[in-house]
Every structure is written in structure tokens, then in C-alpha cells.
Design a protein around this nucleic acid. Structure first.
Lengths: 247, 247
DNA sequence: GCACCGCTTCCGTTGAATGGGACGCTCCCA
DNA sequence: TGGGAGCGTCCCATTCAACGGAAGCGGTGC
């Protein structure tokens, strides 16, 4: 901007401001927001007021700032995941009712699985896969199911990430995981997230057999009915794929 | 901005850009986006690129623009409705299963009910209450349930809206609706949205008996078990309120 | 081959964005 | 009770980032 700036644009600043809100919640003091976003207090104050004028933020008197309803509305009525969510919800509900387990839906974003929707079982084991949460590909069954069914090119780019620290060992391990996942048709991760749970996920494939999403469940470690879970998930995943194709 | 501008700030422009996406979907041509947002093509192009650099938009080559995953993520992990949604989901699922009807959750924003969550029954009648959709207070059972349990001050400000065109007639009609809703403890609207449906909604009340949300169902017109629906909704609403209070 | 249309890049102009400084408030501790 | 710390808010001269018209480029249809 004008005047000796840190070299970033207004857009940068706005993104920094929006990103500054911590994962869990909601209300933040103006001064803290300024510090978190690395902006001078004055600048943060002005931007917050401007954003609040549009309802993208909600600035309570006293400098208490929280995300605005209008921002939520704008994003959620045009979200890139809207069609996916609509197609998937009925099947996720079926899974939830029939298997009585936590169900989640994820897409691939960078090298993470981004969880788009989640239904949790009552009295369930903890499910870390929060909505809008992320998990690295190789530490989540959802991530593995997604990555295992991608372009060769993307996969090798992904695997290159692991080459840095330790040569090829880590790379080979992940490659093996992906290969198993691909050939089995589902990903299974035992106790990575939470030592007492299994994660199981299947890909939702498009017409070219690329994973556009993953459908998964998180079940207690003692649960032994894996054989029953996988076909149910795969059936649901096909149903989702069909509805996506229709639209 | 710099140079003879239309008098709006960068923030204004960004909001115009984000708001320009039509309700239904997702991909928009750059030129069309520019026109919808009322920005010069060049400006729209530059802003889109900047926003795309941060993942807030997704600019495909050829000028095809869609909302970005990162924006969705940012908003949905810090959303003002997050706690509400988490508290409400289990109860909404219960309602959906027990009553086998469409369920929706709304909050008041301005003079509209803003629908925050929705579960739809399989093979159900059409439910216009889309997620992130809006309906005016007086044309939705959710809106009535919300407005009937607000400050006197807010209510009278709301009612003043109707004074303009036709004197007091419309105002009195709405006032009556609100009063009925308040004393009954639930709102009921027959065939306003869709001639073949009922809308029924109850408020989720905080400790001061103010509605922070509404819980509603949309049922086919022939459905006669109103007496069974209302207590179930009220019970669920109390459950939601209790979980909100705990947190 | 020409004309059209849309995305992209370039570049001189300029006023909007910037942020240090000052003010006023409240709260807390001496 | 008085002083000081911490906070949000307002002011305003400086200046560089944002602006957008114009030209370039690639594709498509006549």
C-alpha cells in the first residue's frame, strides 16, 4: 500500500486478518488480532471496521471481534463443496444409521485431507476429524484413500516431499501404503490419530477413476466387523459418485 | 483507491467480487464476474488473481473462477455458528430419525431467518430452506419463532418495517402472528413457502428466554400429527439450549 | 482471411491506504 | 485517591500500491 509497508497488498492483509482467528473460537480482542496477524494496531482497527461494515466480521463495542454471519453465508451458499455435500449427505446418514459409527467426508487439498462433512455417533469415541479440519495425507485413512487414486504425476510430486530428510526410506513406506490402499480399494489406519480407533476410508471416484472425495468411518479399536464396514462404505461411495455424475 | 475510482475501497471491491457469485453455483467466467460485480475487467482480473494466490478463489486457466477451498476452510473452522451447529446436530439427527421429517436450524440475521443447518428426509417434499439460505421473518415458521422471542425493542423496530406501505394493517397482522407464536411456544405456517407443506418451528432459548436459534421441520400438508411434532421439537430445543449453556 | 470476443499484460497517474502519534477511557494497584 | 498501564479510537501528512485505459494475444466463427 501507500506509505512504507511490509510489501504486502491489501488482499494479503485481509487474508492475514481472517486467518488470524484461532481454530477453536470465535471472539478475539482487537489488540490480540492485530498481534496475531502481524498488523499495526491502527491498520487492524481500520480493516476490521471496514470488514465489519460489510458484515464479514462482527465488531462488538470494546474491540471484541468475531467472524461475521454474512461471511459465513456468502461462503456457504456458493461453496465449492456444496454439490459434493448435497450428494453425499443422504448416504452419510445411511452409513451413520446402519453402521452406527462416525462418518466423515473429505477432499484432497494440497497434501492434506480436508474434512468437508462429519456426522458423529452418539457416545462415540473421539473423532478428531472436525469439519474444516485438516490431516496430512499419510496420517489419515481419508488422505490415503484420496491420494491413492490420483494422477501418477501428483502422486510422485507428493512422494518427493518425503525425500528430503531421510533419503528414500520414508518415501518407500508411504509408497507402499498408497499401493496397498489402491489395490485393496480402501484405506485403513490403526491408531494413528487416536490409539484406540481405526480409521477406514474409501474413495469416491469420478468417471476416470480419480478420487474426488473420500468417505470414511472412525471406529473403536475393539470393533471387529471390518468386513461388514468396507462393502457398505464402497456402496455408499458409488451412490455418491452417481449423484455427482447426474448433476 | 488511487486514480479516479467509484469511491469505494479495496474492501468494498473484494466484497462485491465475492458477493457476485450467484446463489446456485460455482463457476463463473471472469468477464461475467466483472460485470456482475460492476468492476472494470482489468480490476476484476487483478483482484481475482490476488485472491486466487491465497486460495480464496480458484482461478482456472481460461478465466473460469470459482470459490476457493481455502476460503471455505477459513470460514468454517471459525464460523460464528460452529458451536450452535455442534450443539444442535445430534438433536437434529434424533428429530430426523424419530419423526422422519426435514429438519432445519436457523438464526436471526436482520429481518431474515438464516438457515444454518438442514437435514432432509429421503424422498421428502421439497424443502426450500437451503443451508445458508434466507427467508423473511414473516414468511417462515423459523423466522416467526425467532422474532417472537426477542427484545421488545427489536420487535418494534421490526414491525415498523411494515408501517410504510399500507398504514397499520400489515403491522397488526404480523404482530398477531408473533403474539400467537409467543404464547403457543411454537410457530406454524401453512403453505406459505410451498402450498403443500407445513412449516413448524420452536425457539431455542437462552437463559434469559431469548431465542438464539430456531429448530423446525417441514412436513407434507397431509401430515396430521402436529401434536406429536411440537413436543418432540421442544424437547430437542431444550436439549440444544442446555448444551449451549454448558459450553 | 478477417472480425470478433475474452483473457492477459503493460504502464503512467493519483488519491486511497498507511501507521505513528495523540487522546480518552477503564481498570487495577499503590 | 491518584497514577499508571493497557486498550480502543481518532487524526493527518506521506507515499507507494491500486487503478484502469489501451494494446497484445490466442481462439473461434463467419
Amino acid at each position: 500500500m501507500a506509505n512504507s509497508a511490509s510489501g504486502d497488498s491489501v488482499v494479503d492483509r485481509i487474508v492475514r486478518l481472517l486467518s488470524a482467528f484461532p481454530e477453536d473460537v470465535s471472539a478475539l480482542q482487537l489488540s490480540e488480532l492485530a498481534e496475531r496477524s502481524g498488523l499495526p494496531l491502527t491498520t487492524a482497527h481500520r480493516l476490521v471496521r471496514q470488514l465489519a461494515d460489510h458484515g464479514l466480521l462482527d465488531a462488538a463495542p470494546g474491540g471484541l471481534v468475531r467472524p461475521g454471519l454474512r461471511l459465513w453465508e456468502l461462503v456457504n451458499r456458493t461453496a465449492p463443496t456444496l454439490a459434493l455435500r448435497q450428494a453425499a449427505m443422504p448416504f452419510m446418514e445411511d452409513i451413520q444409521q446402519v453402521l452406527n459409527q462416525n462418518v466423515n467426508l473429505a477432499v484432497l487439498d494440497g497434501w492434506d485431507a480436508l474434512f468437508v462433512e462429519r456426522l458423529s455417533r452418539r457416545g462415540s469415541v473421539a473423532n478428531r476429524a472436525r469439519v474444516a479440519g485438516r490431516m496430512p495425507v499419510h496420517t489419515s485413512s481419508a488422505g490415503l484413500a484420496l491420494m491413492a487414486h490420483q494422477d501418477r504425476l501428483l502422486q510422485s510430486q507428493y512422494l518427493d516431499q518425503f525425500a528430503d530428510p531421510d533419503g528414500k526410506v520414508a518415501t518407500d513406506a508411504v509408497r507402499l501404503l498408497l499401493s496397498e490402499t489402491f489395490h485393496q480399494g480402501f484405506a485403513q489406519l490403526k491408531g494413528v490419530v487416536d490409539p484406540d480407533t481405526w480409521g477406514i476410508a474409501v474413495p469416491v471416484l469420478d468417471a476416470r477413476q480419480r478420487a474426488v472425495a473420500s468417505l470414511g468411518v472412525v471406529v473403536p479399536l475393539r470393533e471387529m466387523r471390518l468386513q461388514a464396514l468396507v462393502p457398505a462404505l464402497q456402496t455408499a461411495a458409488r451412490g455418491i459418485a452417481r449423484r455427482l455424475g447426474d448433476a
